[in-house]
Write a protein that binds this DNA or RNA. Structure first.
Length: 399
RNA sequence: GCGUCGGUGGUAGAGUGGUCAAAUACAACAGACUGUAAAUCUGUCGGCCUUAGGCCUACGAAGGUUCGAAUCCUUCCCGACGCA
């Protein structure tokens, strides 16, 4: 993998660049659609490509359980398996430590709001007896499969081994994505664990990376705490990773400062991936603070639930007012959906639970986000980042 | 014409003397969704009052029995089926 910076935003950490992998090139900043189980839900790879996506991201844990990483390896790797010819990434399973662990059965997400302080009270979620499918040990994490109840112990070595079988161009170190509701003491403990796992992931990767085709990214954690975030960035940057992920929990309101703390420390010449973040305002925030890559399930998942982006904010296509609205989601949008279908038709598809509704909404949302990041990239090249950001957000946030 | 069974909220369908403004499902209306346990989840869903709660109108219609009726009785209307 090679990373070349083409242009920087003046007086900021932001930059535009190009990354070359053995499966082709992608241009940063980039939005990476999420294909957890080797499929962008509701779309064919051709549709994903036509949207303009350059790279997709699959998940280690899910593909390990089904169909099994051996199957994917024998198919020729995740790209070949799913008929995606471009570059690919796999996430390590670290997010499932959170989603199937601390967050299991609860209403917590990795991004919280300070304006809802109840979400930040650790006691509220201190129910160690509550069932969870992921249990953290010092050596790794024990997962109880949501598919058949079987138990699987994933260590950093195991995660890297699976990821090498999956054969993506970029893989991630095994980490612990912490809940925003954990207290500082826990965040610190978890961070120590993630750091040890980072070293072990790297050792295993070096062992397996004989053909030198796969790049490993280390992950910075530390929750919302400045000290821990900086400590983590310092630690991870000193290891021989090819790039970095910024993971874990954030508060919406101070995500930008957290990203900035980290990227001021990480080496400029290596790419940075902000894991699991991708709402429009977050993309501007991330790019401005030095993020090169984003992935997020929001555009695809929201689309399936009828929530679609417009340049004036999100709308819910299921709302009664769209039943006889023969205009487009966004009259200026160039996507296949907006060029061909009305809100009334989409409304009908969603109310009728027709799967085409999910497909058309996903095409629109992914186009919207992928294209937004492309426009952000172009604005950097044109030295108009701030103008573009202000103009976009003014429209997007107006009610 | 006789007989049997039945008529419950937008729909289907529980309930068969009080704990019933009425289970449940669907529909409807709104909200959430940030490294995908997610084509999912949450809330509202007779009317009025700002909540606890209270008041009013409601289980085909009208009467009646009862302290109390969606539930029991009478008549009527409507539907399905059976027999003529």
């Amino acid at each position: 993998m090679e990373f070349k910076i083409e242009k920087k935003i003046e007086n900021s950490l932001g930059r535009a660049g190009v990354i070359t992998t053995s499966h082709g090139v992608f241009h940063t900043p980039v939005f990476v659609p999420v294909a957890t189980k080797a499929s962008i839900k509701a779309l064919t790879p051709e549709q994903v490509r036509d949207i303009g996506a350059e790279i997709v991201l699959g998940n280690t844990y899910h593909l390990y359980l089904q169909p099994g990483d051996g199957v994917v390896r024998n198919a020729g790797g995740i790209g070949k398996f799913m008929n995606w010819t471009g570059p690919t990434i796999t996430d390590s399973g670290g997010f499932q430590v959170f989603s199937l662990g601390a967050a299991y059965g609860k209403e917590i997400s990795k991004v919280t709001k300070i304006t809802d302080p109840s979400l930040l009270i650790p006691e509220r979620f201190d129910d160690s007896l509550a069932p969870r499918l992921a249990k953290i040990g010092n050596d790794g994490v024990s997962f109880k499969s949501h598919l058949d109840g079987s138990v699987h112990y994933i260590t950093p070595e195991k995660s890297i081994e699976i990821q090498h079988n999956l054969g993506a161009d970029i893989i991630f170190a095994f980490d612990e994505c912490t809940s925003p509701s954990e207290d500082l003491k826990y965040q610190e403990e978890a961070l120590e664990r993630t750091h040890r796992w980072a070293e072990r992931s790297l050792i295993e990767h070096k062992k397996l990376n004989i053909e030198n085709k796969i790049s490993l990214f280390g992950i910075v954690q530390g929750g919302r705490d400045e000290g821990l975030r900086k400590k983590s960035a310092e630690f991870i940057k000193n290891l021989d990773f090819d790039g970095f992920g910024i993971g874990g929990s954030f508060a919406k309101e101070d995500m930008s400062t957290a990203v900035k703390w980290v990227n001021e420390i990480l080496p400029e010449e290596k790419p940075r991936h902000l894991l699991g973040i991708g709402e429009p305002e977050d993309l501007f925030m991330g790019v401005e603070n030095g993020v090169d890559m984003f992935d997020c399930v929001a555009p695809t998942r929201s689309a399936r639930n009828g929530s679609v982006y417009t340049r004036h904010g999100k709308i819910n296509i299921l709302n009664a007012k769209f039943r006889e609205d023969f205009s487009k989601i966004d009259e200026q949008c160039e996507c296949y959906t907006c060029k061909n279908y009305t809100n009334a038709y989409l409304s009908h598809l969603f109310h009728g639970k027709e799967m085409l509704g999910s497909t058309l909404a996903t095409i629109h949302n992914l186009y919207f986000i992928v294209n937004l990041v492309k426009q952000i990239r172009q604005s950097i090249l044109d030295e108009k980042f701030y103008e573009f950001k202000d103009a976009f957000l003014r429209d997007y946030q107006q009610k």
